[in-house]
Amino acid sequence: MNVDIAKTIAALPGTAVLIGLLIAAALLVILVNWRLLILALGAQYILIGLMLTRVVPIELAAVKALVGIMICPVLYITARRVNWGRPEEDETEEEPPADRPRRRWWHILGAGWPVRLIVAVLALAISIGLASRSPLPIVADQAASRDLTTGAFSVMLLGLINAALSENPLKVGLGLLSILAGFELFYTAVEPTLTIVGLLGLTNLFLALAISYLTTAWASRRSEVSA
């Protein structure tokens, strides 16, 4: 039964999964809301696992997705502990006065979202163009190789942008995790050794712990300043 479900999920059209992956990776650059960011990261890991089912055994792809899904609770717990990156006083803030303008729905995107959107779209255009012109010879199937190259290049480039443009440790960390995740999309297909998969998983987990630690330290100074 479980194997059937896995096979059904793995049979999802490759292009649909790729588009989903590109959207999730772009959202990691565009969004600033920590809840949505962690959700997008989880979605990115699941979609990477799904893409991998086309080139490696389902069990191995599932291990990849599981490592990612294990990272998300680590970051979620950290984010909750530090009040989602807001100073403590925001929680106790009184009801806003009636004359204050009502927030529009797009406030969750944060200030400067149009610039981040443009950067993400440009990065996607560059990586898709690069991957279409010279896809890496990952597997014999040309279409699968092209899709994997597109996914890997996009996730890595967007991760690099995230790491380079932010000063918030959580966002930088999501960028670093994305760089590794994008690379693993390509590398697992060419080097499906269980030991390497395990060592890469361990690297990801320790990286997530380091990011959590730095995020907690970063937020503690903000709380001290606001107090």
């Binding site: 890595m156 690099l160 790491a163 000063e167 440790p169 930088v172 960390g173 670093l176 760089i179 590794l180 690379f183 590398y187 080097e191 690297t203 990286l207 380091a210 990011i211 730095l214 330290a217 970063w218 503690s220 100074r221 903000r222 001290e224």
Partner: peptide
């Protein structure tokens, strides 16, 4: 455990992590 001190460490982490795909590729 120093509050707010993260800049140098984040840069260090970034260069180490970027090096991993470069070497493996």
């Amino acid at each position: 455990g120093q509050p707010g001190v993260t800049v140098g460490m984040l840069r260090y982490l970034t260069f180490i992590v970027i090096g991993v795909p470069v070497f493996l590729a």
